[in-house]
């Protein structure tokens, strides 16, 4: 059973990658090959098996609500590619307003 019917163009959009047509074609072929190998997973019987999300089985790693050091704004702005009004990080206009 093959599960892979990947549309690289669509997935690249989800991942915010602007592929060239050449890249798109190349990745489509390569990733299909990888997926057809990965698809051997479909043969494995995993009924009743719990998924592993972490390599260790620790729980409740929680910190106390105590404030610590913040980063100097100069450093934040120095790393930013573009700055607005001397205090904000600047990006081109966000279309469509809020979330």
């Amino acid at each position: 059973m093959s599960e892979s019917d990947i549309q690289v163009a669509h997935i690249a959009k989800l991942a915010r990658l602007q592929l060239t047509p050449e890249e798109e074609a190349e990745f489509q072929t390569e990733i299909e090959a990888i997926l057809s190998y990965v698809d051997k997973l479909q043969n494995l019987n995993v009924d009743g098996v719990e998924p592993t999300a972490h390599a260790t089985q620790i729980t409740n790693v929680i910190r106390d609500d105590v404030s610590g050091k913040t980063q100097d704004r100069e450093k934040t702005l120095a790393n930013a590619p573009d700055v607005a009004d001397e205090v904000l990080l600047k990006v081109p206009a966000v279309l469509g307003g809020a979330h």
Binding site: A80, P81, V91, P92, L95
Partner: peptide, 20 residues
């Protein structure tokens, strides 16, 4: 994504360009 740090492609006309 070139917003908070790192290299940003110049001449992006909207925020989507920044990502892509």
């Amino acid at each position: 994504d070139g917003i908070r740090y790192g290299a940003r492609v110049e001449k992006t006309k909207d925020v989507k360009d920044i990502y892509y």
